[in-house]
Design a protein around this nucleic acid. Structure first.
Lengths: 330, 330
DNA sequence: AATAATAATGCTCATATGAGCACACCGATT
DNA sequence: AATCGGTGTGCTCATATGAGCATTATTATT
């Protein structure tokens, strides 16, 4: 083969080629070299010996092929994760981890199914025997529990009281998770919000609840839901113990989102007005957990998520691709 | 620790996985590393420092990302050249160059337009002032001439007499090319085939024709058309000087294709029966040209092209993508 | 519990690669 | 002619990388 293995002229007309497009020969030659290197894994030196070019020339052809866009790198996930968005999200908010999940529909149930499933995969992946796993309650967290198949035998701690109706977000979430882990769960048999501070104080005296609260300091990995107060998409907010008056007052105070029972304003500031009526991990202890993963998605929650990310309460995020785009882009 | 019998352990202490599918975290992490390396061009060591991994680990993640298909290399041409096919074609027939052109239609005129255009780009690219450029005639070569915009000032030599009707494949092809090169052309004012050997011999005595024939030895780059004799798609074959009797006899002899006036059989063997009635570069001299580029395409010519490639008469090929696929046998 | 089998990690050292430089070449300009 | 600027080339040398190996961590088996 190699009939002309002499110094190749990539430029036509004795190098009189200016900023023109490469001709067919240069194109095919570049493509061949790129294929040989990137796809077949040959070294530049091997290609140089084959083609009779210098290794420097091969390197330059390769660089040019990449920078001109002749060669592009496609990073595509076989699973339903948008890797590119995930990376952008990680960077945009300086997160430990971010996962943007492709969901087939924006319907809440479908969304919860997918986010919960992915979050389940995520915690299955990162939890170890030595971890202490904390969870809040909520529909998405419930979907997570249902999607869990296996888990290391780590302890499981409920981080917050029950936010919504019992049948939806029951204690069974924690029970299921701890059953999979094969350990006894630390539960909180109480509502997330009490009507009066005195009630909350009373509940906190209960031995079981105190025991659970005592575990908060040991939690190493937590998964938390995010509720939106404006627009309203939060089980905590809809809790009957919270009167319309309280709600309005808090929204007027700038509450945009909640994590557990920690209320977050638009800029990420924490609003403590309701603290003494809540049964959940306090902000200070939440911040001490090394890895807090928020799981939330949907258009309505976009700004709530943004607020939570600004608060620095969470280190990681699992959300849907559309919401990821909204968070990053416009 | 943990003496209890666990169900199924998927993850080890440090989140290590067995031969399971990577979880979302590993996936995003790999994607991030791959992005940083391939797209952003960071070295493995830089990425190692950023991420806290060892450079070996980064290398392994990268290898795994490539071999698992997470990262794919896409080599796509902005122009109408199918680079992948071109490479396969080059390899399958051990060619110097091969270009597979995407054509919007299989119609002969459209095909000629595209092949001629690409061939024009190709010769514009590879010719230098010191080359001597040889051409046969034919409709595709004519399209090449029309598509030519610039050319080094190299000499232009007509390699074969006129194959078809004057109006279609006239001498003007050569005239146009040489005009662009800015030099005097070496022409052959004569038909490709004569009715009788004596006529051909007589024409060969003509000073102008002898002068042109004398240039054959100097030709360094040639572009040739390919005609198909079975199925019939060749202007030479349809030349009136070739009687039906001659045609049938030659086809019966196994002629499958022609290059200039060199007849080629199925296995690539040369059939010399008609040599003494033709006015064209002889096989021996054609073989001495360092770079002979065949330009031909279309379903009907597939087997003719295959025969010509087998003959070793040409070093390079410009064809349409569909024909390239047929030739490769994919 | 002990031990084998397996997998993952980081090391050494030889090799491959990149950055910058000097040179050659071409075309344009004085 | 002479010179200049631009471009393409291959060199040197410091750095990055790969192959193979020893070590450790983890899982499976006795």
């Amino acid at each position: 083969m190699g009939r002309r293995v002499e110094p190749v002229r990539l430029a036509g007309k004795n190098g009189r080629m200016r900023r023109e497009q490469p001709g067919p020969d240069a194109l095919v030659r570049s493509a061949y070299i790129a294929h040989r290197h990137f796809v077949e894994g040959r070294t530049r030196i091997e290609i140089a010996e084959e083609t009779g070019l210098s290794r420097f020339k091969v390197g330059r052809v390769l660089d040019e092929a990449v920078s001109s866009g002749l060669v592009t790198f496609q990073i595509a996930s076989p699973s339903g994760i948008d890797l590119d968005l995930s990376i952008k999200l990680t960077r945009a908010f300086t997160l430990d981890r971010a996962v943007a999940v492709n969901v087939p529909s924006e319907q809440p149930e479908v969304m919860q199914q997918y986010l919960g499933g992915t979050a389940a995969d995520l915690v299955t992946e990162i939890l170890t025997d030595d971890d202490v796993f904390g969870l809040t309650s909520g529909r998405t967290i419930n979907a997570l529990a249902r999607a869990l198949k296996t888990l290391p035998s780590c302890e499981v701690v409920q981080l917050a009281g029950i936010a919504g109706p019992i049948q939806e977000t029951g204690i069974e979430t924690i029970r299921r998770v701890s059953a999979i882990a094969g350990v006894r769960p630390w539960t909180i048999y109480a509502p997330l919000v009490a009507s009066m501070a005195s009630t909350a104080e009373g509940l906190l005296q209960q031995p079981e609840i105190r025991d659970t609260f005592a575990q908060f300091a040991r939690v190493s990995v937590a998964v938390v839901a995010v509720g939106s107060w404006n627009p309203a998409d939060s089980q905590m907010m809809q809790n009957p113990a919270l009167g319309a008056e309280d709600r309005d007052k808090l929204v007027a105070r700038g509450v945009r989102a909640e994590v557990g029972a920690t209320l977050v304003g638009d800029g990420g500031e924490i609003i403590h007005d309701l603290d003494n009526r809540c049964l959940a991990i306090p902000e200070a202890q939440l911040r001490r957990i090394p890895q807090v993963i928020a799981v939330a998605g949907g258009a309505a929650k976009t700004e709530a998520i943004r607020a939570v990310l600004a608060s620095g309460l969470v280190h990681s995020l699992v959300t849907d691709a559309a919401t990821a785009r909204r968070l990053i882009g416009a």
